[in-house]
Amino acid sequence: MTLNALVKWMGEGIVFEGTTPEGSKLVMAGPSEMNDGKVLGPKPIEVLLHAVAACTSVDTIAMLKSKGAEISEYEVSVTGERGSIAPKPIEKMHLIYNIKGKKMNPDMIKETLETAFLVESGVANTYKSNITWSFNLIEE
C-alpha cells in the first residue's frame, strides 16, 4: 500500500503545511529561534512522538473495546531522548498510557499494548528506536 503526504512551505519563516490525500491539514515549524522567537507549530520531531502515540492508541482503543472495556478517559504522555550528534535522532522513547474506565485489568492492557506495538502499529514499527511503554489504569 502506498502512502502519500504533501508538505508545503507557508512562504514565511520556517513553517510548513502538511496535507493528506483526504485534505486533512497539519502545520509544522522549525524551532522558535528560526522563527523570530515565535512558536508557530510543532517541530517535525515532536510530530513523530505524537504519531507513535496516536498510532498505537488507534489499535489499543479498538482492541480494548473489542474485549468489552468501557473507556471513559484516555491519554498518552510521551518523552523522547535525542542524540547529541547531528542528525540527533530520537534514541529512546517512553510512552505512558493513562487509561480510565471499567471492565479492564492490568493483564488485558499489557497484552493489548504488546500487540499494538509488536503487531499492529505501523508507525512504531517503522521507527526502530528503543521504544518502551507503560500504562496506568484508573479503575472506576
Results as ranks from 00 to 15, higher is better:
residue 85 I to F: 05
residue 65 K to F: 10
residue 54 A to F: 00
residue 61 I to C: 07
residue 53 A to E: 02
residue 66 S to Q: 15
residue 71 I to H: 14
residue 57 S to I: 02
residue 67 K to I: 08
residue 92 K to F: 09
residue 55 C to E: 09
residue 77 S to E: 15
residue 89 P to G: 04
residue 64 L to M: 15
residue 53 A to R: 08
residue 82 R to W: 03
residue 68 G to Y: 12
residue 72 S to N: 14
residue 62 A to E: 14
residue 77 S to M: 07
residue 81 E to P: 00
residue 94 H to Q: 11
residue 57 S to M: 07
residue 71 I to D: 12
residue 89 P to V: 03
residue 82 R to Q: 13
residue 87 P to N: 14
residue 76 V to M: 01
residue 84 S to T: 06
residue 83 G to I: 00
residue 93 M to S: 02
residue 89 P to Q: 08
residue 62 A to F: 08
residue 73 E to I: 01
residue 91 E to H: 07
residue 54 A to D: 00
residue 81 E to G: 11
residue 63 M to R: 13
residue 65 K to T: 10
residue 55 C to I: 11
residue 76 V to D: 08
residue 94 H to C: 04
residue 77 S to H: 10
residue 88 K to M: 08
residue 86 A to Q: 10
residue 56 T to I: 06
residue 61 I to V: 10
residue 57 S to L: 02
residue 66 S to L: 12
residue 64 L to Q: 09
residue 56 T to N: 01
residue 88 K to H: 15
residue 55 C to A: 09
residue 68 G to Q: 08
residue 77 S to K: 15
residue 55 C to W: 05
residue 76 V to T: 09
residue 89 P to N: 04
residue 63 M to W: 03
residue 87 P to D: 06
residue 56 T to F: 02
residue 65 K to N: 04
residue 84 S to V: 06
residue 75 E to Q: 14
residue 61 I to P: 01
residue 68 G to A: 05
residue 59 D to L: 05
residue 54 A to T: 06
residue 78 V to R: 03
residue 53 A to V: 07
residue 63 M to S: 15
residue 91 E to F: 01
residue 85 I to H: 12
residue 90 I to S: 11
residue 89 P to R: 03
residue 54 A to V: 02
residue 88 K to F: 05
residue 62 A to H: 07
residue 52 V to W: 03
residue 67 K to N: 14
residue 88 K to V: 00
residue 56 T to Q: 01
residue 72 S to H: 13
residue 87 P to M: 04
residue 61 I to K: 10
residue 95 L to R: 06
residue 54 A to I: 00
residue 91 E to M: 13
residue 88 K to G: 01
residue 64 L to I: 03
residue 60 T to C: 15
residue 70 E to N: 15
residue 69 A to Q: 15
residue 60 T to L: 04
residue 56 T to E: 01
